[in-house]
Design a protein around this nucleic acid. Structure first.
Lengths: 222, 222
DNA sequence: AAGCAATATGTATATTTTGTGAAAACTTAC
DNA sequence: GTAAGTTTTCACAAAATATACATATTGCTT
């Protein structure tokens, strides 16, 4: 789990960082909206953003709006009491939760967990800009739907379910094609090729494990 | 939509209120069970209750029991983790749903919506110029009524109810034709063809999901 | 660095799935 | 009982997908 904490007060960042470390979360910091955007671009594996609203240079709401254009990351907003008005605005941009200052760090952590849990429970797999909606049977990359054939889709789902585990061709064949498939092992390769092609910038999530088969490799978490 | 939020922690009420406002819900507050009962008597048009279990003066379970004697209002219970035991009891008294703290406000809203939807299915479905009036049993496109056969109409309703979800032919057959239909899978295709034909410019709302079945796909909203 | 083995990829062919029109079977209203 | 409307089946065309295979490329071992 990698957190991006955006606040201009270093004290706030420190407190959050401390609690986050305690939860074994990695923390990246930014002290204003502009920096936050830069950090998001720099670290492609940020899982969660905690962002203050009132900040110099670029405020949290605007920053969030910009970040959402780049990718979908669950976000919790922080705000001082008086910024009531801002709250309302924040909702336009898919804020998952918000907490008013002063806050209890434990509550903050609990809320982060609740949001992450929710995202996991949904029939949606999200990794950066790759979104797989199992109910809708759709795959999106950068908000754009990509078309997969049934086999490619099944293959992707199986990879997601067995992420970070090397899967042999036999395993894939028996699990996806069925035990009664008597074709060529190398058929898998062809489908991998197709899937990779369709995954575009995420093609490298499918790693070749020489001598074994393939692996769907995600950096940490998810 | 008028919500009654009952919790002794003002912060919790505030968060829910903000999210509720965003959904255009009106919010009435109470900080304990006794107050909640008073509010229900005072406002005869409350549509939904969100109630904490652990509260001073009068707890949520008891309050809920009293309120149910006055009138039937959908209720969602909140509770802290440790109150597991309460969970079981709560369901005895016509609780519609249950959420443990801390919760993701988004999830809470989603649940409320789900319950309300369950309780009062929309009578009219509108998507751009496509209007389906369930009570009137009519379908209009561009103000003009289109004639559908009973099966086509049922199919359309089922699609509307399950929008953005890929539905297999079997699901459609068992849900629309009945579990005791033993005919050909492809019968579905024929009806899809007919429905598409009748939907005119909206024919593409019915997307074929290869290898699975069909999906009623609406771009965002609705 | 050469040689080997495994994997990647392009292409052709086989297979599966879906769209569609027409006819048969069934319902319903009169 | 019949006509009109509806549902279902079926057959074939069209489209999409799966597979096999040949060739190119890569990565590993020595």
């Amino acid at each position: 789990m990698k957190l991006l904490v955006v606040d201009d007060e270093i004290r706030i960042r420190e407190v959050i960082k401390e609690y986050a470390y305690h939860e074994k979360y990695e923390v990246i910091e930014a002290s204003n909206g502009k920096e936050a955007i830069a950090k998001v671009k720099e670290h492609p594996d940020i899982d969660f953003i905690i962002m203050d609203i009132m900040m110099p240079i670029l405020d949290g709401i605007s920053a969030n709006r910009e970040i959402k254009k780049i990718k979908e990351i669950p976000t919790l907003m922080l705000s001082a009491r008086k910024e009531e008005y801002d709250k309302l605005q924040a909702f336009d941009d898919g804020i998952d939760d918000y907490v008013t200052k002063p806050f209890s760090p434990r509550e903050l952590m609990a809320r982060i967990k609740a949001i992450c849990k929710r995202n996991k429970e949904e029939d949606v797999f999200i990794y950066q800009d790759l979104i797989v909606d199992k109910k809708g049977h759709t795959v999106k990359i950068d908000q754009k739907e990509i078309k997969l054939t049934p086999k490619e889709y099944e293959l992707l789902l199986f990879f997601i379910k067995n992420k970070n585990i090397a899967l042999s061709r036999e395993t894939l064949l028996s699990q996806i094609w069925g035990y009664d498939f008597f074709g060529d092992d190398r058929t898998v390769d062809t489908h991998i090729k197709m899937l990779r092609g369709n995954l575009g910038k995420y093609r490298d999530l499918i790693v070749t494990v020489r001598g074994v088969g393939y692996k769907f490799e995600l950096s940490e978490s998810n």
